[in-house]
């Protein structure tokens, strides 16, 4: 997989380089440059053929659509990975905090209820299968 990606990357880079060279030729065109330009155009076509061939080898690569938004707005796509990781970490910590809070609340509630309704709470614990309130 990595080799096919590398190959695609190389082909794309070569393609971009060809376009850049055509831009230079065209920006101040000289009559003797026509043959070179024709060659370059043929190279562009062969480059496109190569990219088309490599398409099948990278079909199973999935890219999140949000990455494109980063690229389209001129931002580094590595920031997407960073932001994703940080978001996941923050969410994980928030959920962990909620779970801990509910756990503490449950323990506290059981303690308080037991002090007020001891018989009912004993029944309740018997049904639930936990004999004593978890701390």
């Amino acid at each position: 997989m990595s080799s096919s990606l590398e190959q695609l990357e190389q082909s794309l880079e070569q393609f971009v380089e060809n376009i850049r060279q055509i831009k230079i030729i065209v920006s101040d065109f000289q009559p003797q440059g026509q043959n070179v330009l024709n060659q370059k155009i043929q190279t562009v076509v062969s480059g496109l053929q190569e990219i088309e061939k490599l398409k099948s080898q990278v079909q199973d690569v999935h890219v999140p659509l949000e990455v494109f938004d980063y690229i389209d707005s001129g931002r580094n796509p590595q920031l997407y990975t960073k932001d994703c990781m940080e978001k996941a970490m923050n969410k994980n910590e928030a959920v962990r905090g909620k779970i801990d809070s509910y756990r503490r609340f449950r323990a506290h509630l059981l303690v308080e209820l037991t002090s007020v309704f001891p018989a009912e709470m004993a029944k309740y614990r018997a049904i639930r299968g936990d004999e004593r309130p978890s701390s």
Binding site: I71, G74, N76, L79, M85
Partner: peptide, 13 residues
Amino acid sequence: SSGRKVKDTLSSF
């Protein structure tokens, strides 16, 4: 990803 300082621009990538 979090420890390394990543430049914001696409051209740095």
